[in-house]
Design a protein around this nucleic acid. Structure first.
Lengths: 216, 216
DNA sequence: CATATATCGATATTGGAATATCGACATTCC
DNA sequence: GGAATGTCGATATTCCAATATCGATATATG
């Protein structure tokens, strides 16, 4: 539950990706009759291996399960949320208010992950000054100035591929520590800055390959 | 180059994801002075391990590289495209014409992957019958009928989580063989149907975890 | 109160992909 | 023509995550 001075667990990228699934599952549980859950049941429901769930939980949580009883659901939830940093709001800006940018600006689901998009940037004259779903659009030149002032740590890049690197540099300059990149380019960033790519081409490759195999 | 009767290579998911990157890199090369490329150079430029690139190329391509010369660029391009099925158009429908759905309907980048979204489905009265970036919106009930007629093989789900499974069932019923799922739910499908999840929560977990570590 | 059992946590095994190594060989250069 | 070199393909090694195994233990049951 607490015990913040425990050594930072080094979790694999894949393990971190499982955490939101645990979280969602746990939150959907009905706690009125039973406020406990076993790793065995979680594994069965989520179609994962038992030991894997136990290892993941052990890595993020300081509470331990009890034989024949399991884990306290609330403790797990708050431990996972704490580990993921969902108890501390993350402020983000978005660069590139095209179709996709608008979709992200208007998406309500981010709230539960404590991600707050506080402003958008673009170059289009007619967008600048306007509001998209309550978020003001600024000229990209303002980013270097605005990001530190708004205490932004995440940059979302939905700009065209051709300018993505340039935009990325500006954001990183402005103090962004993590970049969520939707442009189909490999971004160069200084050491210590994380780039999380959302690459549609990769997904399409898998889809298309599957269909190709089916045809044979 | 050809040699279609060679045994279907079983590539790992990760290997398939690298293919679009190779493809993009190869297409951006300047072939006017030199129409060949070495795996060594590709690896260096793409920051991959040499042997890995060779193995990937060997898996998708029937041409082999020559010592001190490398591979013919054009051959590699057409082999990768063929392996991914980009020489055969893939027809798709999209279910859920909200913000994200619209963004995908209007995205031009899919053309180069030979993905063609031919229609959209929704439940909103005011959308039905309208066109979004040239694609007509039909009521979801029409999907079972329309998908086979349009010879659709890919279903894109951008519907709300609550109805995603229901929508998925309809599409699969309509003959869809691969589902590209943007809804934050784990979809159940019959054996043989591929579900490719585009899960924002997973990405956010990685971003947020990175920031949390930075803070320490 | 004793036994059975579900569940835990730790440790070993397996599996698969990335990395390293190495001999072969086509071109280039002297 | 012969040596040097860049690149190939194949094989061996390493590494890491997923899976399996097992003893320990808290609760339930009789």
């Amino acid at each position: 539950m607490k015990d913040d001075n425990k050594i930072t667990q080094l979790m694999s990228r894949q393990a971190i990706r499982r955490l939101p699934h645990y979280l969602k599952y746990l939150k959907n549980l009905d706690t009125s009759s039973n406020d406990r859950i076993s790793a065995s049941l979680m594994a069965a429901d989520l179609q994962l291996y038992e030991g894997l769930v136990r290892k993941d939980l052990a890595a993020v949580s300081s509470v331990s399960g009890k034989p024949r009883v399991g884990f306290k659901i609330d403790d797990l939830i708050s431990d996972i949320e704490h580990f993921l940093g969902y108890d501390m709001p993350n402020r983000a800006v978005l660069a590139g208010a095209g179709h996709l940018g608008k979709a992200l600006l208007c998406y309500r689901g981010f709230e539960s992950y404590k991600l707050e998009i506080v402003a958008a940037f673009d170059v289009a004259e007619k967008l600048i000054g306007s509001e998209i779903c309550g978020k003001e659009v600024f000229p990209i030149e303002k980013a270097g100035d605005l990001c530190p002032r708004l205490n932004v740590r995440i940059g979302i890049i939905t700009a065209p591929a051709a300018v993505a690197q340039e935009v990325c540099d500006i954001l990183v300059d402005g103090g962004v520590l993590a970049v969520w990149n939707f442009a189909p380019v490999q971004l160069g960033v200084p050491r210590g800055i994380l780039v999380q790519n959302e690459n549609m081409a990769e997904s399409l490759a898998i889809l298309s390959n599957h269909l190709t195999e089916k045809r044979r």
